[in-house]
């Protein structure tokens, strides 16, 4: 187990969104603009790293039978911290993400990593795992929100991409656009993987 490998596995091979299909609700709901996407990604990253570290620290003291409620309490604490800090320092982001900040607590990635990784590994690896998975999630958020914002609004992070003559595909910003984007991206990924594996078997 090398730290480097553990860090980058979340980017592609075990990408939480496209591969493990975890935490899709916030991905679809808050990817309407790159700004929101980055905000949501960063919030999830913070909660993931913190809860992984704390759970790994106290993993030997938690009885197996009551581990889930304890994990949930720890995760909910960090989510509330993010919520309060965001309300105090980034009010506009807090307004546009709405209840999805509180809903990080039921994001399956976080409980999933706590259960599958942090409760079995030491603090250093738990930290690396949280960081890698969180970054993988954030990158997926940025990818999806970029596609939706560029096509649906003609802008990227608020900067005009196509010039004023572009007539935006409003559908991409509305809810169907989210489903189409993720469906097509997943299908592209599966096509790409299919090609890669058939190349490997040919050789």
């Amino acid at each position: 187990m090398s730290p480097g490998k553990e860090l980058i596995k979340g980017f592609y091979t075990e990408n939480p969104v496209f591969r493990l299909m975890l935490g899709l609700c916030p991905v679809l709901a808050t990817s309407t603009s790159v700004n929101n996407g980055i905000g949501m990604g960063a919030a999830t990253l913070f909660v993931l790293v913190c809860s992984n570290v704390v759970i790994s620290l106290i993993r030997k003291a938690i009885p197996a039978k009551i581990r889930i409620p304890i994990f949930i309490m720890i995760i909910a604490t960090f989510v509330t911290i993010v919520d309060l800090v965001m309300a105090g320092f980034f009010p506009e982001l807090h307004e546009s993400l709405g209840i999805f900040i509180s809903l990080i607590v039921v994001n399956c990635i976080i409980l999933g990593r706590a259960e599958a990784y942090a409760s079995k590994n030491n603090v250093f690896y738990a930290f690396i795992d949280g960081l890698g998975m969180g970054l993988g999630f954030t990158l997926s958020m940025i990818l999806i929100s970029s596609i939706r914002e560029i096509l649906g609004n003609g802008t990227w992070l608020g900067l005009e991409v196509f010039g004023s003559g572009y007539n935006p595909v409003l559908l991409m910003i509305l809810s169907p656009g989210a489903f189409f984007t993720i469906g097509l991206l997943m299908s592209f990924l599966s096509w790409f993987e299919g090609r890669r594996s058939s190349c490997v078997t040919n050789f």
Binding site: S175, P176, F179, I182, G183, S187, W191, G194
Partner: peptide
Amino acid sequence: PRSMHGAPIAFIIAGCMSLAFL
């Protein structure tokens, strides 16, 4: 199409339903 099997096609259908519900 093979690359659409499973989740991808489900999402596309969900998109169409969401469009109808709009």
